[in-house]
Amino acid sequence: MRRLTLIAIPYLWLLALFLVPFLIVLKISLSDTAIAIPPYTPTLDLSEGWAGFKAFLSQLDMENFTWLTQDDLYWKAYLSSVRIAFISTILTLIAGYPIAYAMARAAPEWRPTLLMLVILPFWTSFLIRVYAWMGILSNEGLLNSLLIQIGLISEPLTILNTNTAVYIGVVYTYLPFMILPIYSALEKMDDSLLEAAEDLGCSRLQAFWLVTVPLSKQGIIAGCFLVFIPVVGEFVIPSLLGGSGTLMIGKVLFEEFFNNRDWPVASAVAVILLLILIVPIVLFQRNEQKQREAEG
């Protein structure tokens, strides 16, 4: 009996506030926009019983999805979200790997401090960390005035409100997610393997490519997914650092909902976004599973 209550409470909470809301999104994505409250038809009227339910089902259609495929804006937004997420994941990997590598090679008594320094920014507000770059990257910002003062450029560079600023923002805010899994893979590595490789005639660089990188593969994969998956749906970074040319689907969905008040289209956008993310999410879970099995 007690066991049942223990299971039921969190179970029902998640059913009511996670699964049901998601089914509502699915349902509204199949509805039509209407000038009404709520602004879509049909609404489910259970007082008419089974007949009412059948009438309700017959009015649902894929119209919003067809419309999404015909409107260029959405295709471009999906493609460019995936492209921006992909490029920024690679950039984060390039920036994060050397840091994780250096941390794993630091003296053991230093490692907890270094680890805390990597995690600390994670506890400060995401919004504030993104905002901090606005003052640095703007036309009158610190970076431009610094570059002009040392005479590298004469005109300010436009960085804020471009995709470059979005990449900088993503690398900055998601760097800890890349560093931590790579660090934990590298830390476990047995150094005698490198010595063996060098004894067998590898140069240090060859030993790095042939031994270190393959041994940290799991960490690299985990880090890349931890950056890629959330960045595809990112909203704050493109709206604060990106410009009018930065198309990202999280921003489109937000605006579709709040500015155009088009609930069915916003819901359809959400459903497709989730479909796009299912593949990387499943791959990520597999990678984690494999790692657990390797350890257990």
Binding site: P21, I229, F235, G250, A270, L274, L277
Partner: peptide
Amino acid sequence: VMPEVITGLS
């Protein structure tokens, strides 16, 4: 792993 925009919307 759910994008925040979807959680919020739903």
